[in-house]
Simulated assay, not measured.
Amino acid sequence: MARLTGPVLMIALAVAAYVLFPFNLAFLTRIVIMILLVLSLDLVLGLAGIATLGQAAMYGAGAYAAGLFAIHVWADPLAGLAVGALAGAALAGLSGLVLMRTQGLTLIMLTIAVAQICAEIANRARDLTGGADGLRGIRMQPVLGRWDFDFIGQTAYWYACAVLAVVFALLVLISRSPFGLSLRGIHESPERMEAIGAPIYRRRVLAYAIGGAIAGVAGALTAQITQLVSLETFAFALSAEALIMLILGGTGRLYGAVIGTVIFMTVHHTAAANDPFNWLFVIGAMVLAVVFFLPSGLIALPTALGRLFRGGRHAGS
């Protein structure tokens, strides 16, 4: 039962958001998709300790793969998700064979390079991808043959929420499995894990590939819902924003990815609407406050407040 708590909570929050903001479904859907991308980064960075700024590479690969699959092969949404996941996993797995042999700044720079190479390939293959104009003409069939993608965005929203619940449940199982626990051990002390005979390199590559598959699913959702794929799916800014969201919420706990994404995108949306020129100041101030006062992320706020309350009560007595 405890393993079902996360997905059930995701659905409950989705229902509440739908009831409270019925005219902002497009924005809510973008939040859900971004949560998927940040969750993939949490698996790679928060759980396995793999430093990366190129998660957009797998996101873009999944988006282009799902879009091309829908145009030329089959427009079924679930089949497109599977294709996007395979594309993201394949790119992460193949590049991970090289990347996981490095670490630190070298690893970070190489992950950025992979995303930039993918962007250039997509730009050059104009006959296939549309180049700088983007991949257009994506028309999806109804979800499960019953629910059409409507103009209001209700089907897209619930479709994205259902995918998020499934992925979140999968990540909960992975984090609690022996494989997930070994990834935590590799993150905390690779020397000790190597001393007990753990195959560090293989598990890091596998974790990177799984994270790539989830990022590919997020990209596929974007392609199916927006019916457009642009070169921006490979943008460095996307990977950087995902990292900021994860840091805000807290790494390695899954729920931190959800909290950080919701807060970042809500503040971003509100601040940009109120002041289109200085909204970055608000984002920067928020990130600095969290880094200085809550190094573990916003997910640790209840614990910090509890300690503060107990400390004040003891001082008063």
Rank of each mutant, 00 (worst) to 15 (best):
R146K: 14
L170F: 09
A162S: 13
V205I: 15
R139E: 10
A215P: 04
L206F: 08
R176C: 10
L170T: 05
A218M: 07
A165T: 01
S177K: 07
I214P: 08
L246K: 07
E188M: 09
I247F: 07
A240V: 15
I196A: 06
I247D: 01
L248C: 10
I210M: 11
S239Y: 03
F234W: 07
A235F: 13
V217S: 02
G216W: 03
G216M: 10
A215H: 05
G249N: 04
D150E: 10
G212W: 05
V217P: 02
I210Y: 02
M193W: 10
Y208C: 04
E241M: 14
E241W: 08
I225G: 00
G180Y: 07
W147Y: 14
L144V: 15
E232W: 14
L144A: 12
M140F: 05
H187I: 03
I196Q: 08
A207I: 01
G145L: 11
Q227Y: 06
G197T: 12
G153Q: 08
R146A: 12
G216T: 09
M140S: 06
T233G: 14
G197S: 13
L206V: 07
D150W: 06
G153C: 12
S182W: 07
L170R: 02
I152M: 08
L173E: 11
T226R: 02
P190T: 03
G216P: 05
L206I: 12
F168Q: 00
A198Q: 14
F234R: 04
R202P: 02
W147P: 10
V143R: 03
A237H: 13
M193H: 08
L173G: 12
G249V: 06
F234V: 06
A218C: 07
E241L: 11
I152N: 08
A218V: 07
P142V: 03
L181K: 15
F179E: 08
I152E: 09
F236M: 13
A160Q: 02
A162R: 06
T155R: 00
S175W: 09
I214L: 15
A240G: 10
L170A: 12
P190Q: 04
M245W: 04
L144P: 11
Y201K: 12
S230F: 05
L170Y: 04
E241F: 07
L183M: 14
S182D: 12
Q141R: 04
T222S: 05
A242G: 09
R146Y: 06
L221R: 01
A209P: 07
M245C: 13
A215S: 11
R146Q: 11
R203C: 06
M140N: 00
G185V: 11
M193Y: 09
I186C: 05
I174R: 03
R184L: 14
R202W: 07
L144I: 14
T155K: 02
A198V: 15
R176G: 15
G216Y: 05
I214K: 06
M193L: 15
M245H: 06
H187G: 01
Y201M: 13
A237L: 13
I225S: 00
R202S: 11
G185P: 12
L183R: 03
R202E: 11
A218Q: 03
A220M: 05
I244Y: 04
A209G: 08
Y157M: 07
V172A: 02
S239W: 03
R139K: 12
I174H: 05
P199R: 12
V229K: 00
Q141H: 03
E194K: 13
